[in-house]
Design a binder for these strands. Structure first.
Lengths: 190, 190
DNA sequence: ATTACTTTTAGTACCAAGTCATAAAAGTTT
DNA sequence: AAACTTTTATGACTTGGTACTAAAAGTAAT
């Protein structure tokens, strides 16, 4: 196989390292049939850090995500207003931990979690459980946006379930809507 | 502060490294006010690998478990089987962090999160988003139970959405069902 | 107190995977 | 052939270690 030009080699080098970041200069030198020094010059020109730094940055990413997924677990929005068995409002700021790692779009289950836990909270009972729900994600929510969820307790169904309607907004623009059918241990009285 | 006993130091050392694996022996030596050699002896006895190996293993975890474009951290539950655009299975063990603090019943949004992220994962596309979904929590899930979620890609709607059906089970007993209408950037071809 | 044993510290040689700087060789263009 | 780019070589130095040997310090047993 003929030895490529500098530009071609550098293009491939970049790709190779992106694809298999755990590769040493020595191995790269063998692959491209050039000396280690050439690989190092290439890395410099392309501003690609050395192996250990590459590994470290991959690891750090993972570490942050791990720590995050643990910490975030319980907190699904902050309740700012609550009238038991009537209505409730909670806010949630969309941070890095809520979005897809590549795109900046919030993952659906976080919006659901906020709405669902608000539906649970608004019910005046030791324990409320979601039996059924019907939801719609109206528009994408981006990192940095503040989602305001509003829950309204509607009526009871014939089967004793309480219906809670939750609508979520970003700057008065609706982003989510859901109807939650909730079990409760005690009866709703009015 | 008095210098701790060997056993106590080793206990703390293990904890410290687990918590902050990016720490060098030198820094550890300063923290515990002993020599570097002592730290190294400790690591040997405790069979804790050196800094670079620790970093590498953290990084490798992340690299192996990538499911196509979707990174691990985006998936709730562990994907055990995946046929893109066909079906997928994930499992999730319900731990303390998933249940209501008094009762031992899993919060609905965790079951939803598992199902929703599986629906996202099964779609062979850079980015899939949930547009709409219709779900039902069939029975309560208790702490300690293992939830198996099965996703099946159904058809496309007239509006270009892909429908994914997800059913979750605990020991063959159904606990959850949901239909997810997913947006995708590319078309599904068959 | 002396001996025995554990724990800690010190020091040396070595390694991997680099950086940084200098210089020479090889290849290409004009 | 001169001028320029590209590649290779070489040596000194760095980090964060391993492996091994040896001595010093601390603690317990006789």
């Amino acid at each position: 196989m003929m030895r490529k030009t500098k530009a071609e080699r550098q293009r491939l080098l970049k790709e190779t390292i992106e694809y298999t970041p755990f590769i040493t200069d020595e191995e790269l030198a063998k692959i491209f049939e050039v000396s280690i020094q050439t690989i190092r010059l290439d890395r410099m020109e392309l501003k690609i850090p050395e192996l250990r730094e590459r590994i470290k940055s991959v690891a750090k990413l993972q570490w942050n995500e791990q720590v995050r997924s643990l910490a975030v677990e319980d907190i699904v929005g902050e309740v700012v207003d609550l009238e038991l068995d009537k209505k409730a409002i909670s806010i949630m700021d969309i941070g890095r931990e809520h979005v897809f790692s590549q795109k900046n779009i919030a993952r659906g289950h976080h919006l659901f979690a906020q709405a669902n836990s608000l539906a649970v909270a608004v019910i005046n009972d030791e324990l409320a459980l979601t039996a059924k729900s019907n939801i719609r994600f109206i528009r994408q929510v981006k990192q940095g946006e503040r989602v305001v969820a509003k829950a309204i307790v509607k009526k009871q169904t014939d089967r004793g379930l309480t219906i809670v309607q939750v609508d979520s907004f970003v700057n008065n623009e609706q982003v989510f809507t859901g109807e939650f059918h909730m079990y409760r241990s005690r009866e709703l009285r009015d």
